[in-house]
Amino acid sequence: MAAVAGALDLVRYVGRWGSRPAQHVLGNAGRFTYLLIDLMRGLTEWRVYLPRMFTQATHIGYGSLFIVLLVAGFAGAVTSLQTGYQFTGSLPLYYAGAVISESMILELGPVLTALILAGRIGARYAAELGTMRVTEQIDALESLGRSPITHLLLPRVIAGILVIPALTMFANATGIVVGYLTAKGSLGLTYADFEYGARYFFRPLDLWYSLIKSYCFAGAVTLIPCYIGYNTQQGAEGVGRATTTAVVSASVTILLLDALTTKLLLGVK
């Protein structure tokens, strides 16, 4: 632990002599890492964060379910129509079953869900924590000898990490079902054909891949907005800035992680 802290101080020290943007990036990276260490350390205090975590999880879970399923449904339908348009006459119809289910599970389900939730959960976390910072509620918590890490951050982060992969699985299922129904309506794809195609290309690893991806995205959707909201400065304007920064950074990180996981996880297959 001391070695890590020392290394981080070195990073800050070097950063101070770099250009301002470099200093900014290094400073943030350092503080973000400190926050991660604090979160890990706080994990033993389950008595504090577990009850609050359940409250958060129900809030964000129920609150996001509708929009997530709506988006997934449309994604399934559009994929289905596009597949039909591109395949007409050139490929056997059962291929559509494979394309719809694989693109939902591998890419659209996790990524679209995460991007939507960056706007919903990420913005909410950043705005809540930012407001608590500028109205001195975080100071008030600390003045009571209570830790903002265990009272405010851990419940939010863990709630997100539990809820987001679950929502992703629901999104996958919805997208595939709506995709199938659309294909049935527009292409006349039978259930037997659809199932044959979906099974033919399906590997159990794909579901694991989808799940791993959504865990990575859940990290981005929760940790980044929490970090940015927690470090908000300067009043209402600061809260606004924190919220937009949080959503943009979380979204960009999701796209980067998408590329990274695709390369790392699918590359080895």
Binding site: T135, E136, Q137, D139, A140, E142, S143, L144
Partner: peptide, 15 residues
């Protein structure tokens, strides 16, 4: 801090 009570100027209640 658990032995020091602090009354904030603007309340700072957990809203």
């Amino acid at each position: 801090r658990s032995r020091i009570g602090y009354v904030f100027q603007y309340g700072a209640l957990f809203d």
